[in-house]
Amino acid sequence: MSKARVATIWLDGCSGCHMSFLDIDERLIELADKIELVYSPLVDAKEYPENVDVCLCEGAVSNEDDLKKILKVRARTKILVSLGDCAVNSNVPSMRNPFGVEDVYKRAYIENAQLNQQIPKQVIPPLLKNARPIHECVKVDVFVPGCPPSADGIYYVVSELLAGRMPDTASKTRFGA
């Protein structure tokens, strides 16, 4: 049996969902026999490959770079999983939304900066007007809420997907879990 091509991606989030994924502990070894991790912050691949079976997406879509990434991921992935609250409902990243981008920049780079107070124009990708859940930008196939979703929950979702079933996530996790 050929291994499933699995990827993970990290947008505007804290990497907590990735940590929770790693928390499935020894079950990782079992998973390793079934999947090939083709792209992830946890591996070296620099370019998101074609023909990915499942991608676990952590984080909200907050800046132009996030948007570019998720569009590419969507185009090259069969099953896109919104992993965790930031991906599902934009969670903490969205707490800036009511204030507007200008105020957020000012707060971060001027008011709270000790040195070199200026709003960066290069390197840092520009923020979108709102940090948004992934499904507001591209079609999402599976939603796994939770901050972070539990290791068991993630393991359940991945196992079900590998077995060719759609997981019933509401039974395992919830917003803010």
Partner: peptide, 14 residues
């Protein structure tokens, strides 16, 4: 069984 919100968030400032 609600796992995501389909309606756009309104993000009011409160």
């Amino acid at each position: 069984g609600l796992d995501h919100i389909r309606y756009p968030y309104l993000y009011p400032k409160l």
